[in-house]
Design a protein around this nucleic acid. Structure first.
Length: 119
DNA sequence: ACGTTGACCTATA
DNA sequence: GTATAGGCCAACG
């Protein structure tokens, strides 16, 4: 087991990412870019993925399986322990997965910018 | 300290 | 429609 250390500076950013991911309803999915854009880091969407990497080490639950890339492709399946873990979780929520690809992704897509109010 | 990598996205051809 | 290039910024060797 490796422990991923999170810099104090980015603790906030990570927390914000987790907060958004936790708002994603069951049976719905969102993308890294949408989260990054919502947090004002549209050009640093890779950091969202890095935050997901550390999500497993967080004390609270983070439904990282509901976060996919902009094509609706499950790119992070290898980081879920088993390759089919992510697809299983999504399938359990009613999301049809075919070859690591979310079906009807356009309808299942949940955009935080359109569902969360910006204060 | 430098180069490479990465759960990505946008732009251009 | 696919293919290639560039950018982004933190973590790792």
């Amino acid at each position: 087991m490796e422990v991923i250390k999170i810099s104090e500076k980015h603790r906030d950013f990570f927390s914000m990412v987790y907060a958004v991911v936790q708002q994603v309803p069951e049976g719905r999915v969102t993308s890294y870019g949408a989260i990054a854009k919502y947090l004002g880091m549209a050009r640093s969407s890779r950091m969202v993925g890095w935050a997901m990497n550390a999500a497993h080490h967080q004390p609270f639950y983070v439904p990282a399986h509901r976060v996919v890339n902009r094509e609706g492709l499950l790119t992070g399946t290898h980081h879920f322990g088993s390759a089919h873990r992510m697809a299983e979780l999504l399938s359990n929520e009613g999301v049809r997965i075919c070859n690591d690809q979310v079906e009807n992704f356009n309808s299942l897509f949940w955009d935080p910018a359109s569902n969360l109010a910006l204060d």
